[in-house]
Amino acid sequence: MMGILQTAATKSPWIVHFDCGSCNGCDIEILACLTPLYDVERFGVLNVGNPKHADILVVSGTANYRNARVLRNVYDQMPWPKAVVAVGACASTGGIFRNCYNTLGGVDKVIPVDVYVPGCAAKPEAIMEGVLQAVQVLEKRKETGETYAG
């Protein structure tokens, strides 16, 4: 029974996409994954737009003082097990906004990040790869029963 649940968990990653203040370049690429060309739904991925239904949080853009609280809230409102994918240079490290007066840097300053997808903007293939890697993380979390604590 647990086995079935686990395989199922890898086959249906639902994502919520949060834009921390990216230049929209990464956002467009993320949405491109849904288009017929890439069709990420082949892997069961759905963009649900709601943290309470989601497994994977896909973040683009730099964390700053204003949006850190919101990012944290969205993350907190996701049910366990969950994973975070940081898409693009901004989300991973702060990118070209790094050390700006109002930014904190990469989103890992605010929430734990599991997969970093490099690029400016990140390519759709890379983003899909990142999401599928996050699925592996999810699976491991499910196996070890690791819970969110923090």
Binding site: I4, L5, Q6, T7, A8, A9, K11, S12, W14, D39, E41, R42, F43, G44, D55, P79, W80, P81, K142
Partner: peptide, 17 residues
């Protein structure tokens, strides 16, 4: 499109969450 059994995967996943 997703596999035929996708709705079952979804529900089973949700049950385990």
């Amino acid at each position: 499109g997703p596999p035929l059994l996708q709705p079952f995967y979804d529900v089973l996943k949700l049950l385990g969450k």
